[in-house]
Computed example of a mutant assay.
Amino acid sequence: MPALSTLWSRLGAAARRFGLRHALRTALAAVATQLLVTALNLPQGYWAVVTAVIVMQANLGGSIRAAWTRLAGTAVGAVFGAVAAHFGGQSVVAAGLAVFATLAVCTAIPRLRESSRVAGITTVIVILGGHPDIPAVVLGFDRFLEIAVGIVTALVVSAVVLPSRASRALAHGLARLFEDVASLFAVVVEGRLREDYPERHIFALKDRILRTLARCRELRLEADTESRDKGESALRAMLLFRGERLFEHVLGMDHVAVEWRGKGLHRHLPEELAALEHTGAEVLTGLAAHLRGSGPLPEVAALDAAVAAAREKLAAMRRDRAPAAYDLSEVMHFFSFVHGMLACAADARETVARIRSMEMA
């Protein structure tokens, strides 16, 4: 049984890596749409099949967003195309004016801006792809019906066949974000304490975090499309905001570490800084595990103790006038770096507290 479980897990990982589930769902949506348009005897049913393939996204929220964009764009384009074809026929002038009007209207209305390209294409198809014996209104309606059939089929398949939720993907994306920020935080601090800046490692981590952030922003919009629950939406927004803030704090520390090569003030409290780094990274890693559903919310008592110890040591250094023995550049770099560490600790603690209060509400 353990061997079978391991094999099943590996097959699942391979399917996710190569996008086999998405490929299967898209293929099923295309086949189902073709069968449906054949049964309905739609004149150009291949447009419905094309639409089903385009609308089918990796998760339900993405499919809904793509469906809205294509349906709205098709409706606007069909209306303008039918009007232009009725009054101007299949002329280049009519097509140009119709496309101009379509794009102008879509751009002027914020909710239609994403639909402008589809609307323009539909306008051109209705005008130039028509037949003299078929009224423009009928052609526009047929185009809208074909697109609607493809959209509905794609959404049904997306919701029923091996469904994937954007909210779940976002939770894993945010978990990876906090995990990578924790790694970057630890690497930057350790590099400074050891006076050995690992440039290539830090660059790779920053690049991965930036890509994760970009994907999480997209997934958040898709997750909000899936569910209108205000509490869940607020939690997702808070987590993404806190992840971005933590990354900004660590970027500030990294900027200081690049310029700060002196051997100085940080040697007065290596144990306090090491404890602050360890407990901060531990809380962020615990947050990542909780978001994946593999652990409880992390405790912050050790982090609070590390922050208190660091602040006490800093106060003692000021009383002993330790900074006076160093030049201004060293003092500024040191306090900027430590302030970044304390800001990361504060945001990590606040994130845990906010999640706990939201989950208990």
Results as ranks from 00 to 15, higher is better:
residue 310 A to E: 03
residue 320 D to F: 07
residue 308 A to F: 06
residue 317 M to H: 07
residue 301 A to V: 10
residue 303 L to I: 01
residue 338 V to A: 09
residue 320 D to C: 00
residue 323 P to S: 11
residue 314 L to N: 12
residue 295 G to P: 13
residue 336 S to H: 14
residue 305 A to V: 01
residue 298 P to H: 07
residue 309 A to N: 10
residue 333 H to G: 13
residue 326 Y to T: 10
residue 293 G to W: 02
residue 320 D to G: 11
residue 312 E to D: 11
residue 306 A to H: 01
residue 318 R to H: 09
residue 318 R to I: 10
residue 303 L to W: 06
residue 313 K to E: 07
residue 293 G to M: 12
residue 300 V to R: 10
residue 305 A to E: 14
residue 329 S to T: 14
residue 319 R to Q: 11
residue 309 A to T: 03
residue 311 R to F: 03
residue 294 S to M: 04
residue 336 S to C: 12
residue 299 E to H: 15
residue 315 A to D: 15
residue 305 A to L: 07
residue 316 A to V: 12
residue 339 H to A: 09
residue 296 P to K: 01
residue 338 V to R: 06
residue 300 V to I: 07
residue 316 A to C: 01
residue 326 Y to V: 02
residue 297 L to C: 13
residue 302 A to E: 13
residue 302 A to V: 04
residue 308 A to H: 06
residue 340 G to F: 05
residue 326 Y to E: 07
residue 327 D to M: 05
residue 299 E to Q: 12
residue 340 G to P: 12
residue 321 R to D: 14
residue 296 P to F: 03
residue 329 S to N: 06
residue 334 F to T: 01
residue 340 G to K: 08
residue 321 R to T: 05
residue 308 A to Y: 01
residue 302 A to M: 05
residue 338 V to K: 11
residue 296 P to V: 03
residue 316 A to Y: 10
residue 318 R to D: 15
residue 299 E to N: 14
residue 295 G to T: 02
residue 316 A to D: 12
residue 327 D to A: 12
residue 331 V to M: 05
residue 320 D to N: 13
residue 315 A to R: 15
residue 313 K to H: 10
residue 329 S to H: 08
residue 312 E to K: 12
residue 297 L to W: 11
residue 320 D to T: 03
residue 331 V to F: 04
residue 317 M to R: 02
residue 323 P to N: 05
residue 324 A to N: 08
residue 318 R to A: 09
residue 307 V to M: 04
residue 305 A to C: 00
residue 310 A to D: 07
residue 315 A to K: 07
residue 314 L to W: 10
residue 338 V to S: 06
residue 331 V to H: 01
residue 318 R to C: 02
residue 330 E to V: 10
residue 328 L to H: 06
residue 331 V to D: 08
residue 297 L to K: 10
residue 320 D to L: 12
residue 307 V to T: 08
residue 309 A to K: 01
residue 307 V to L: 04
residue 335 F to L: 05
residue 326 Y to P: 15
residue 312 E to S: 14
residue 331 V to G: 04
residue 340 G to W: 08
residue 336 S to F: 09
residue 311 R to N: 13
residue 338 V to F: 04
residue 329 S to I: 13
residue 312 E to L: 06
residue 313 K to N: 09
residue 312 E to P: 09
residue 315 A to T: 14
residue 325 A to Q: 05
residue 307 V to P: 15
residue 337 F to M: 02
residue 314 L to T: 06
residue 330 E to Y: 02
residue 321 R to L: 14
residue 297 L to I: 08
residue 332 M to C: 14
residue 294 S to G: 13
residue 318 R to L: 04
residue 302 A to C: 03
residue 335 F to M: 02
residue 301 A to E: 12
residue 314 L to E: 15
residue 304 D to V: 00
residue 334 F to M: 05
residue 325 A to V: 02
residue 300 V to C: 15
residue 323 P to E: 02
residue 319 R to W: 08
residue 324 A to R: 12
residue 330 E to I: 08
residue 337 F to E: 09
residue 317 M to W: 06
residue 340 G to I: 00
residue 338 V to L: 07
residue 322 A to Y: 06
residue 306 A to W: 01
residue 309 A to P: 04
residue 334 F to G: 07
residue 314 L to D: 08
residue 331 V to Q: 11
residue 325 A to E: 07
residue 334 F to C: 05
residue 327 D to I: 05
residue 332 M to A: 10
residue 313 K to Q: 15
residue 318 R to N: 12
residue 309 A to R: 08
residue 340 G to Y: 03
residue 308 A to V: 02
residue 301 A to H: 09
residue 322 A to S: 15
residue 296 P to S: 02
